[in-house]
Simulated assay, not measured.
Amino acid sequence: MTEIDSSPLVLHGRRRSAARLRSGVLLLEQGGVRRRIPVAAIERVEVRGRTGRELAVVLTSNDPCPAAPGHSLVSRSAPAVREFAEALRRALPARDATEPRPDGASLVSVEPMERPGPEPRQVALVALGAGYALIAVALVARGAGEQAVVSWLVGVPLVLAQGVAALVGGVRRVRDAVVLRARGITVEGRLEYSYGTGSGEDAVRRHVYSYVDAHGVRRERDGTEGGAQEVEIVYDPGDPEGTTKVGRGTGWQLTGGVLVAVLLGLPMTLVGLRMAASALAALRA
């Protein structure tokens, strides 16, 4: 086994599947089970598919004409697949072409995974969606009037929800800026890799930086800021991976957060609340 037997990378796939490399073992979680695949059981790692979004591991075999047993995981991000594949390749043991191979399939262990329950956030979103739909149906059924129906259908999802999102986002930016200004620690960060998300006009380029905090712990920062090979990263020692910023200046972050909250989030929230209240008043009438 090589010295690089673990990786901080986590590759997420469809339907809550995921792959991790821990202590010389590839943990492949999919279909309600977790497969533990030792790197000694892996012959090679491949990136497949026309868009390069499939990670495939081919297991070793003592059969001179093997059928190439293996496992695969399809992700939404081709760059994430490439980076994980490279990390996994570095962990594979060096072998000679004539070296006997073990039966990789026999080294793989499978264990059932506990089915995760619904997250509180998901439950809240479903409840809000159901309540929104029921009120819309009740407004139509009671003949509350076109203005009330439009106020509810437009005011809640397009005005109130967007306003609350902008208000929360702006307050969060202000909070992070204040925290970093008060107790932030500046360290040097190095670019590990960049990747794109979305397509067309929604395409966004993100950059993953690694840094070592004041206690010698290696951490990563994933965000849209940056792009240079070496940058300065400011982090909150109380939340070293959650509250971080590329670059030392927090003035623009603080100003931008205030402007978004005050000029966009707060007015939209108030207008949305007024539209929702008028629709509910028509329902009670």
Rank of each mutant, 00 (worst) to 15 (best):
Met1Asp: 11
Thr2Gln: 13
Ile4Ser: 06
Asp5Thr: 15
Ser7His: 08
Leu9Gly: 00
Arg15Val: 15
Ser17Glu: 00
Ser17Tyr: 07
Ala18Phe: 05
Ala18Gln: 08
Arg44Gly: 02
Val45Arg: 02
Val47Phe: 00
Arg48His: 08
Gly49Leu: 04
Thr51Phe: 13
Ala56Ile: 03
Val57Gln: 00
Asp63Pro: 12
His71Cys: 04
His71Ala: 09
Ser77Val: 06
Pro79Gln: 09
Pro79Ile: 10
Ala80Met: 05
Val81Gln: 02
Phe84Ala: 02
Glu86Ala: 05
Leu88Asn: 00
Arg90Pro: 13
Leu92Ile: 04
Arg95Pro: 00
Glu99Tyr: 06
Glu99His: 03
Arg101Met: 02
Pro102Phe: 07
Val110His: 03
Met113Thr: 12
Pro116Lys: 14
Arg121Asp: 04
Gln122Asn: 09
Ala124Gly: 04
Ala130Trp: 14
Gly131Ala: 11
Leu134Met: 09
Leu134Lys: 07
Ile135Gly: 12
Ile135His: 12
Ala136Val: 10
Leu139Phe: 08
Leu139Arg: 10
Ala141Lys: 08
Arg142Leu: 04
Glu146Thr: 15
Gln147Asp: 05
Val149Phe: 09
Ser151Asn: 14
Gly155Ala: 10
Leu160His: 12
Ala161Asn: 06
Ala166Tyr: 06
Gly169Gln: 12
Gly169Ala: 05
Val171Arg: 13
Arg172Glu: 13
Leu180Glu: 01
Arg181Gln: 15
Ala182Asn: 12
Arg183Gln: 13
Gly184Met: 06
Gly184Cys: 11
Ile185Val: 15
Glu188Ile: 09
Glu192Gln: 07
Ser194Phe: 04
Tyr195His: 15
Gly196Cys: 06
Ser199Trp: 10
Ala203Val: 13
Arg206Phe: 09
Ala214Trp: 00
Arg221Asp: 03
Arg221Cys: 03
Asp222Asn: 00
Gly238Trp: 14
Asp239Trp: 01
Pro240Trp: 04
Gly242Gln: 15
Thr243Ile: 08
Thr243Met: 02
Lys245Arg: 02
Val246Phe: 01
Val246Asp: 04
Gly247Thr: 15
Gly249Ser: 03
Gly249Thr: 01
Thr250Met: 02
Leu254Lys: 12
Leu254Ala: 02
Val258Glu: 03
Val262Thr: 15
Leu263Met: 11
Met268Gly: 08
Leu270Phe: 13
Ala276Gln: 11
Ala281Pro: 07
Ala285Leu: 10
